[in-house]
């Protein structure tokens, strides 16, 4: 019955809804790209918080994609670390430009993801969760005991800032050392996030996205209709790892250093939490979750030693009272509206 009501509502209101979504999106973009950076241009702390939240959202988008194939991925920290070290090693030891390092880090993380994924994606449910969690630890320990190549516990420092990127003598992106670094990183993060969201949104609304969703519901059934299950789940995992690698490379360059405990088990868990808080059913879920939780965490900074306590209580409350995410809150409203129409 409700599906009938929904159908009529969509039939009548579809153009209106599309327009209003476009307006909301436009307002968001203007605020995000113009209002926020110009308003907070002087307060570097706030800019840095938004920048970090953007890249955390970007990394969580990858985790969200593995959720669509029905896997709980607690290994994203490992791939952020791999991407970070790739950038660090390439730029300090081989002098490669950041603009080459960035995509290369993503590719290296993605390739590693394919190699690991071929094996571990055979596991499901909690088992996959546990093994990816172990992977986070294993990769961290690997970098810790990597000797001179990875720099051991103190890691690698003095990583150069992004240099100028030009084409035929025209400067496309200025040298980060010569402009306001905070603003430059803010825009780099913003562009990454917008591109990342666009790609994930495109994937999830295409045929590929529906294949991923079918894997989540029943792998056997998907296989029986001719979907190459092993290939598609590795593909989803590799995209996720690519996002992790790019995010890790960003943090490495913006901090200008990397060490093995930058990304740990807790970070991997937080990426999942961001997705959950926003709501797993929505592409924008991880972004909403990451911004809210990360900014909240920074606000709790005043409480010093009680910061983690309050944060953990919030986390528990979310899981108890909002188990399906913040964006699911509008569902009851839609339900009431559809009932009114029927009346």
């Amino acid at each position: 019955m409700s599906s009938v009501a929904k159908g009529t509502r969509r039939g009548v209101g579809a153009p209106n809804r599309a327009v209003s979504i476009r307006i909301v999106l436009g307002v968001f973009l203007i605020v995000y790209l113009i209002v926020l950076p110009s308003y907070f241009a002087e307060s570097r702390y706030i800019l840095r918080v938004i920048t970090t939240a953007s890249v955390l959202s970007f990394i969580s988008l990858g985790v969200w994609l593995t959720f669509t194939i029905g896997r709980i991925n607690i290994g994203q920290g490992a791939f952020a670390l791999i991407g970070g070290y790739a950038t660090a090693i390439l730029s300090t030891k081989f002098g490669v430009s950041f603009w080459v390092c960035l995509p290369l880090s993503g590719l290296i993380a993605g390739l590693t993801g394919i190699i690991f994924g071929l094996g571990i994606l055979r596991l499901k449910g909690v088992y996959f969760a546990m093994i990816t969690l172990s992977l986070t630890e294993a990769v961290r320990l690997g970098f810790l005991s990597g000797g001179d190549f990875t720099g051991g516990a103190p890691g690698i420092s003095n990583i150069p800032l992004p240099d100028e990127l030009g084409l035929f003598g025209i400067t496309l992106i200025p040298d980060f050392g010569k402009v306001d670094t905070h603003i430059a990183f803010y825009y780099l993060a913003a562009v990454l996030l917008i591109l990342g969201l666009a790609v994930i949104w495109r994937i999830s609304s295409s045929r590929l996205g529906w294949i991923f969703k079918s894997l989540q519901q029943d792998e056997e059934l998907s296989r029986s209709v001719g979907i190459n299950v092993a290939r598609y789940r590795v593909m989803a995992y590799a995209i996720c790892c690519f996002y992790g690698g790019i995010g890790g490379a960003f943090f490495t360059v913006s901090q200008q250093s990397i060490y093995p405990s930058v990304f740990g088990v807790l970070d991997s868990l937080f990426f999942i939490l961001y997705c959950f808080l926003g709501g797993l059913a929505f592409v924008a879920g991880p972004i909403v979750g990451a911004f809210l939780l990360f900014i909240l965490f920074e606000l709790l900074h005043e409480f010093q030693q009680y910061q983690q306590l309050i944060y953990s209580l919030l986390m528990i409350s979310i899981m108890l009272w909002l188990p399906n995410g913040l964006l699911s809150l509008r569902l009851p409203a839609a339900f009431w509206r559809s009932r009114n129409i029927r009346d």
């Binding site: 709980i72 909690v126 969760a129 868990l269 999942i272 939490l273 959950f276 983690q308 306590l309 944060y311 953990s312 209580l313 986390m315 528990i316 979310i318 899981m319 108890l320 188990p323």
Partner: peptide, 13 residues
């Protein structure tokens, strides 16, 4: 999965 995250929250607490 939500019970798993709940347990993670309990761990932090």
């Amino acid at each position: 999965e939500s019970t798993m995250l709940l347990a993670a929250g309990l761990a932090l607490l």
